[in-house]
Amino acid sequence: MNNIWGFTISSARVIDYDKNDRSFAQYMTDTVPSSQLCIGCGGCTATCTAGALTDFNIRKLQMLVKRGENREAGEQMHKCMLCGKCLLVCPRGVDTRRMIFAMLKYIDNQKL
């Protein structure tokens, strides 16, 4: 291979749902069934302690996992401060704190 052009071919930003590994998503559904109930309202993110100071977005995080964007989710997860405020806010009763614990456990096991 040689590259004399001064640029490389960009990789696609698109979520390739067919190719993505969704076993993480399945694990999340199985261990925290209430995670299925998210309606994307963003209440959790609005109140998030970590999200106020970093680009951490718990609403988006769980959605990334659901779409199989595991690498990006894995990069974000550790920013959660586990304060539990999101748990208080969620109108659908999603056990967000447990969701984070489950995610962290999966990530540790999978070395994502």
Binding site: W5, G6, F7, T8, I9, S10, S11, A12
Partner: peptide
Amino acid sequence: VLANRGYSIANSKK
């Protein structure tokens, strides 16, 4: 713009 050619070519590749 040279810096943008990476995503220009990516479209053809797709």
